[in-house]
Design a protein around this nucleic acid. Structure first.
Lengths: 152, 152
DNA sequence: GACAATTAGATTGTGCGCAATTGAAATCCG
DNA sequence: CGGATTTCAATTGCGCACAATCTAATTGTC
């Protein structure tokens, strides 16, 4: 039989690394959902808060570069965080084009409630920390090569 | 200095495997975009077509199980594919609740135009096939463990 | 100083993704 | 058989994502 083996069919769903990544991202989202509901955050909002907990009073632009998101995504998201009293949005006096994002006291305080989240994720992944770190580094390297390809 | 090293801070963005996966998924999407524009498909629509190219005339539900998507996502997506004359949606005569999805001749024919896509992705990933297969298997294993955790 | 080019953010429109609800059809079970 | 339960799609509502477009502010150049 002259048929190509399904094991190497490049159009077969189960052979697609992109689908592995896509479906893993959704699986993460579903694991995070109940944990983040308790914090009143969605997953993308949680990522923004992670950035701000490292350093706040930063331009929207910096958050976007860090998370690979543009203003069309971040503007409404940050307005929702502002409505939840977790951040404040102010125009920079040095450069009136920039919107600086700062944490409110509630925004800072939420970090304490978030500390238990990574441990729950680790448990759900049923994986050792070194294994996860190794995978993370591989995936980041792949992502960076893809982003390089886009820029060309 | 009693400060915890950032290298092991569990709330640091760069230590999050979930963000690696999340941002890699977006990077894949951006690489696929120009390739799929030529086929008139979005990335999730491409995934549905991959499923149907393996076997069509299947219930909506089966597609959802394969892609981990529910009817709220698939119903409008499939209606757009129907509007593009790539699929037909018909009620099963055996079970009137089920909607069977079948490819049109144009839907079948699109597979030929899609054959060049995986190769372009491989080039953009700048990675060997065995490396990608190994990563894919690891990510799928992680995804399956996460999905197991959700079900508990 | 004037004007072109660039940069930052906001807005609009399309398409996911998922929770919650609805309604119809099939199945279970006494 | 007949009502209760379960199953499957569809619908609705909210929140991303991103392309394209717009406005305003800044920078570069002469």
């Amino acid at each position: 039989m002259p048929r190509k083996s399904t094991a190497v069919d490049p159009l077969r769903l189960d052979n697609q690394i992109c689908f592995a990544v896509y479906s893993a991202a959704h699986a993460f989202n579903r694991v995070y959902k109940p944990l983040l509901d308790r914090l009143g955050l969605t997953y993308p909002q949680y990522l923004v808060m992670l950035v701000l907990w490292e350093r706040d009073d930063v331009p929207l632009r910096d958050i976007g570069e860090r998370l690979f998101l543009d203003s069309g995504t971040l503007t409404p998201l940050l307005k929702r965080l502002e409505a939840a009293h977790l951040v404040r949005r102010t125009r920079s006096s040095e450069d009136e084009r920039q919107v600086l994002i700062a944490l409110t006291p509630q925004g800072h305080a939420l970090k304490d409630k978030a500390r238990s989240v990574p441990q729950s994720i680790l448990a759900a992944s049923d994986c050792s920390v070194p294994e996860l770190v190794a995978m993370k580094d591989e995936i980041v390297a792949l992502r960076d090569r893809l982003n390089t390809a886009i820029g060309e």
